[in-house]
Design a protein around this nucleic acid. Sequence first.
DNA 1: GTAATTGCAAACGGTTTGCGATCTC
DNA 2: GAGATCGCAAACCGTTTGCAATTAC
Lengths: 128, 128
Amino acid sequence: MNDIKRMTRQRKKILEVIKNTNNHPKADWVYDQVKKEIPNISLGTIYRNLNYLVKKEKIKKLNFGSSSSRYEGNSGLHYHFRCKECGKLFNINIDIGNLKSINKIKKESKFDIGYHRLEFYGICSDCK
Amino acid sequence: MNDIKRMTRQRKKILEVIKNTNNHPKADWVYDQVKKEIPNISLGTIYRNLNYLVKKEKIKKLNFGSSSSRYEGNSGLHYHFRCKECGKLFNINIDIGNLKSINKIKKESKFDIGYHRLEFYGICSDCK
DNA sequence: GTAATTGCAAACGGTTTGCGATCTC
DNA sequence: GAGATCGCAAACCGTTTGCAATTAC
């Protein structure tokens, strides 16, 4: 059950707009674009469809986990694992050696990269 | 100028609470904890101090970039680079070979990892 | 004493949702 | 025709902010 149920004008256009840009638009930009063709479309429809298309894996949502921020005092080097089921966040401790390939990306990139963040996703042992 | 200006009771307790947990608490959890000792503290103070402590690099904020979500239709394998200055998001294309060490982490982890996300930060060429 | 910080409450911004009307299959 | 989806507007929720009172240095 990963298929689109009804391809309405609105849904079609929203998907088209996102597929045809190389930027990583926010909802309100998509809204502006779609409105050019469907002037009376509502923001609610944009959000409903974005969520729908993400669920159907037609597009990706580019932010991490839940809406509210989390804080941490642990200043040691580590990454995080987030459980998709319960949303809990765990630390993953690795040794520096494992970072080689990431350092390579940093050096070879045309961007001036200061730091990076790496997060893993899955199901934690409690939820399994 | 990276030092704390005034160490109020509130600020001290907030920092202590975050330093003394291995979880990755949200603001409202910190609020609940601190309230046990300072019952009339306000949520606004919690947020102001969390932001302050992040700016002073005493703690870390564990979420990415801006508050609103971004979407993308590009289903190819790539990571992202975010400019700290203008907030723009760029793609970073790498070849699969570079992922070895990440795959190693996945295999060796005690967690059941499905996928991962990697994001790089710095200043983009336009902002420099 | 003075500037930083607080508590309070209102405002904000992005997102979600309930509803009756409309559209797709 | 039936159920999915829409437009609209109100509600939601995490976070920020203005202000007068208080506090740390």
